[in-house]
Amino acid sequence: MNGENKHLTHDNPFLPEPARIVRTYYLTEDVKFFQVRIVDMEKALSFNYSPGQFGMISVLGAGDAPFSISSTPSRPGLLEFCIGKAGTVTNALFRMKENSLIGFRGPYGNGFPIEKMKDKDIIIIVGGLGAAPLRSVLLYCLDNRDQFRRVSLLHGAKKPAEMIFREEFFALKQREDLECHLSVDKDDTGKWTENIGVVTTLFSLLEKIDPVNTYALVCGPPVMYKFVIKELVNLNIPKDQILMTLERRMKCGIGKCGHCAIDYIYTCLDGPVFTYWDVIHMRELI
């Protein structure tokens, strides 16, 4: 795939790596799950990343777009993405069948500060598609369970049919080493067995926390942040231990095209994970 060029002495960070869609299916009506493997087996197995990082997927002819990685580096070999229909690239991806070739480059961005989070309590607060990046860190914590103290998941979706990774998250309720609270804003099925109400209503179910030793990880639709952060600040969690991942603006992934710039920073290099303290100082972040 790599063309010979007499001028070229640098690696080309724009060059997509051939990858294959191994498996794909619908998670909800308009969100699809993709399992992807880099074709070169050695590259596939040595590919390393941190939870919270993202990659660029390209479809020949349609272009490329950034997607957060939903799988965990603790299970190497396959990369997983959970993709909502949004533009040209996702439309093209949705049409692709298993075994199709795509391009992949990455990983990009800072990811979650796993080292700092070790031996601390972790609360993961998910709204809707926010599960895409947070599933990575959740699975990472569960795979390395002894490295973290309490792990809790507060998960909110609009309605039961819009909950992604539904079976997977319900199965987590059986685990003794995880506090798992699920909620929907509205139950239009009459069969929902868990909490009903916006995700912030789950805070009252949370066991008493040790704020100074807690990291809270938040991702969800823009409207969610304000309310969730208010709860977290009221719980006295330090503002630099409230982490959010904000990936909606990235384009090239390598800090060159300029599109994700906010004030001083490039979201794709300095983010997508920011602390609430960063957010207070960066005017346009959320």
Binding site: N2, N5, H7, L8, L15, P16, G61, G103
Partner: peptide, 10 residues
Amino acid sequence: ISEKGYEEDF
């Protein structure tokens, strides 16, 4: 870009 993939163009 072709079916063979991406070939650098400088």
